[in-house]
Nucleic acid binder design. Structure first.
Lengths: 133, 133
DNA sequence: ATAGTATTTGATAATGATTATCATTATAAT
DNA sequence: ATTATAATGATAATCATTATCAAATACTAT
C-alpha cells in the first residue's frame, strides 16, 4: 500500500511549479536547500514512481541525463541542438485532436493500440538563433 | 580527413539491411560472427559518427539502451509498452508534409527554427494486444 | 612500390547516470 | 500504544557509454 511522504510531495509540487525541465540531480540540489536531509536516491525513486503514475513525464534528451516535466497537459517539446534547452510547446485542443487522429491513423498500419505519444521538435531556439548572426 | 574502414562499412550496411532496431551490443554480437576481431568500442564509435552524419538514427527508449536505425526515409516509430519492441511506421509524402507543416506552425509559438523532429507513438503492438485476451 | 602521416582500431580503464541493498525512520492500521 | 508495512538516506553495484592509447590500417606524395 502506497504511503504518503513529504519528500514525494515536495518533489511533485516543486516540479509542478517550475517551468523548466530539470535533471534529477538539478532538482535534488535545489530541493536540498529546503530539505537538507533529502537523499538523491529518494529523488530518483520518486521521480520514477511519479512517471509510472503519469504525474510526471520523463524526457529523454539526445545527450545527457533525463529531464523531468511536471506539466501533464497535452503538449510537445522543443529541444535546442545548440544549448540543449528544452521548452514546452502547448497545443490547443483542436491541435491535440488533429495530431492524435493522425497518429492513430498511422498506427493502423501496424495494427497497434495507441495509448500515448512523444513528440519532440529539434532545431535552434530563439536565443541561439540570434547568437549565430 | 575521413578514412574508410571495413568495420564502419559493415556496421552501416548491416543496419541498412535489418528492419529491427538493434542496440549497439546486439549489433556487435551479431557482427562478431562475420568479423570476429571486431571490438565493441568500434561499434559504439561508428554508430555515434554515423548518427552525426545523419546516416543512422539513434532511438532513445523509455528504458534500456539506445537503439539504432539505418532507415533514413522520413518515418516515425512505435514503441510497445509491453514487449519494448520498436517498429517503423512509414509515412506517405503528403503525410510527412502535413506533419512538418503542423510542427513548424507549433514552433512559431516559441520563435524557434525547426530542423527535425522525433515522433514516437506508444501503446500495445499487434502481438501483445492478442496475448492480453 | 615505399615511406611518411593521419586516422581507425581493439582492449580496457574510466565515467556518468541510475538502480539495488539495507538498516533506520516514518506512516498507517489495529 | 503496538504492530506492520512502506519510504528514506547512505552507499555499493550495475549498466551503458566514452576516453585512452599502443598497434594496425588507409591514404598521400614521392
Amino acid at each position: 500500500m502506497k504511503k504518503y511522504s513529504k519528500q514525494r510531495e515536495l518533489i511533485l509540487n516543486s516540479l509542478r511549479k517550475r517551468k523548466d525541465h530539470p535533471t534529477a540531480e538539478r532538482l535534488y540540489l535545489d530541493l536540498k536547500n529546503e530539505m537538507p536531509e533529502l537523499g538523491i536516491a529518494t529523488v530518483y525513486r520518486n521521480l520514477s514512481d511519479l512517471c509510472e503514475e503519469g504525474q510526471v513525464i520523463r524526457i529523454k534528451t539526445s545527450s545527457g541525463p533525463d529531464r523531468f516535466d511536471g506539466n501533464t497537459m497535452p503538449h510537445i517539446h522543443f529541444e535546442c541542438k545548440k544549448c540543449g534547452d528544452i521548452v514546452d510547446i502547448v497545443l490547443f485542443e483542436n491541435e491535440v485532436k488533429q495530431l492524435d487522429n493522425d497518429l492513430k491513423k498511422f498506427a493502423k498500419q501496424i495494427s497497434a493500440e495507441v495509448d500515448g505519444s512523444d513528440i519532440t521538435i529539434t532545431g535552434l531556439c530563439k536565443k541561439c538563433k540570434k547568437k549565430l548572426r
